[in-house]
């Protein structure tokens, strides 16, 4: 079993901590482990904290948080060793960090699956910051590495901002939101629960999902979903391949396919923004 890791990046004030708290509040049974860089005040809303130790904060719902400082590897190993193991690790990077570098380091550990890089952009200020002589190139690097760009504070955004962000983050899904409120499955994928069936709608009216049961090579399908322009923010599910059942994931342009137990039920859930998820084209993949 591999432990999925998501890196949450974005410049100061873009809403990284707000997003983390939103995900913790809506973890829906997922045991999340949050790793934060040491800069900043306590990153977890007080009402979510159950107990605070020297280096680990216990959070409602079986979640935890710790800071990684200069040693991300040690912190990740600590998370891997937790019993019971977390379902998903979120790494909240500092505002000037390059998230791809953090993910590359996380990927060195055995038992880690790089799930994706989520970069938040402040709808009201990202374009100005992008042109700032000091931090503009840092923000450009962050965006260019994103699998999902969360256009936060979307109420403050100019109408063409999503398109502009898409041009700075090629291959990434651009998802508008306010105060980090996005469906947890769009950011972290579906939890360990069974895959639902059919074409269904989310409580959040912005999103749409579709379950497909494709045939063929799992890795090829994963790549197709990631690169095919179907408007898929995330996809996860099982399909039959030549070597047996495979579990596939895609996040933005990241994709993976790994062997899965024979008892898994076939079906791949594709999640995308309503109006952008190309339901008809996805159905043709089946």
């Amino acid at each position: 079993m591999t432990l999925p890791v998501t890196v949450i990046g974005g410049y100061l004030g873009a809403g990284k901590t707000t997003l983390v708290n939103h995900l913790l509040r809506h973890a829906e049974g997922r045991r999340l482990a949050v790793l934060v860089n040491e800069f900043g005040a306590l990153p977890i809303d007080a009402d979510l904290i159950e107990a605070q130790g020297d280096d680990l904060i216990a959070i409602a719902g079986g979640c935890v948080c710790c800071s990684f400082g200069s040693d991300l590897t040690a912190a990740l190993m600590q998370m891997c060793a937790l019993d019971p193991a977390p379902d998903h690790v979120l790494i909240e990077s500092s505002g000037v960090a390059i998230p791809g570098a953090i993910m590359a380091t996380a990927a060195l550990l055995d038992g880690i699956r790089c799930d994706g890089i989520v970069v938040l952009a402040d709808g009201g200020s990202v374009r100005r910051a992008f042109d700032d002589p000091y931090i503009g190139d840092t923000i450009a690097r962050q965006l260019a590495q994103a699998d999902i760009v969360l256009l936060n504070k979307a109420d403050l955004a100019a109408p063409d901002l999503a398109d502009w962000l898409a041009s700075k983050a090629p291959g990434a899904a651009v998802v508008p939101c306010e105060r980090g409120r996005v469906p947890v499955e769009a950011v972290l994928g579906l939890g360990p629960q069974l895959v639902p069936q059919g074409h269904f709608h989310h409580a959040d009216a912005l999103f749409d999902s579709l379950v497909i049961t494709p045939q063929g090579d799992p890795a090829t399908l994963a790549r197709t979903l990631a690169e095919g322009g179907f408007g898929v923010v995330r996809a996860k599910g099982w399909m039959q391949g030549a070597q047996g059942m495979a579990l596939i994931h895609t996040v933005g342009r990241q994709f993976s396919a790994e062997p899965a137990g024979a008892d898994a039920r076939a079906g791949v859930v594709c999640i995308g923004l309503k109006g952008q998820l190309d339901v008809e084209a996805l159905r043709r993949l089946t």
Binding site: S70, D71, L72, A101, A104, A107, L108
Partner: peptide
């Protein structure tokens, strides 16, 4: 299979033993 800009690989696909940066030195 290591894919990290700070860990050069030899012709055998294995790390050369040079670790170029604090983030790969700490492990």
């Amino acid at each position: 299979g290591i894919n990290h800009p700070a860990i050069p690989l030899g012709s055998d696909g294995l790390p050369t033993g040079e670790l170029k940066g604090p983030e790969v030195m700490t492990p």
